[in-house]
Amino acid sequence: MSLLEIKDLHVDVGGKEILKGINLEIEAGKIHAIMGPNGSGKSTLSYTLSGREGYEVTSGSILFKGRDLTEMSIDERAAAGVFLAFQYPIEIPGVTNMTFLRTAVNAQRKARGESEMDAASFLRFVREKAAQLKVSDDMLKRPLNVGFSGGEKKRNEILQMALLEPSLAVLDETDSGLDIDALKVVSEGVNALRDPERAMLVITHYQRLLDHIVPDVVHVLANGRIIKTGGKDLALELEKSGYEGLIESAA
């Protein structure tokens, strides 16, 4: 059984149909990339998977580990193992990064019936993961994402992913706003989290991220539908010929 099974998914946003029949299956251990032009519905797919309000599933189904994801609240999905790395991580003034991380980790552990981590063992746990991602102690002490640079925000997203150990990570335009060096650090972090039990869905506009995070499968999303699926070479092909030709031939 696949980890994630999306069947004929239709989603409305603000009364307008954005996803028009998505079919997608992802097995554990695989990395799928979704590429597509602006407005094709990439972010809508990531928000729908995480259950954001205003993204209305009008028909179709999403099964995650055999459970109907659409019946679950946002935090239930998170506890079940769905993680969304945000394109634009949110700032929360006054709440330190550390507080936030521990609250999130323990909320999920508790929801899964596991024991919560005490302050000391959590600190060791965070420090170890943080070092790998070049997240400084200072970044842990500062309010969540407040005043973080683009690269710091993205590294912080991957740190959260490392701590929360999801079974499905959705990376929404993780490369946006990153220079080459930052992109490398983030990609290395993501690659370190590759695991036979974990699947990833990498959403991106550009091919360059896929040089670093090499996908098993590439899908092209256009106008709310997946119009083509292939191997990692599909991304290179797109880089050369652009989306337009593909969209036209699919139409």
Partner: peptide, 27 residues
């Protein structure tokens, strides 16, 4: 709404998210 969604996506219930954000506001 973004702040609430972000916290919930990380596993906090809505009320926990509100408590966390308000505590930050009052820090």
């Amino acid at each position: 709404e973004d702040q609430l969604f972000y916290c919930q996506q990380r596993g906090l219930s809505e009320e926990e998210a509100v408590a966390l954000i308000v505590n930050g506001f009052c820090k």
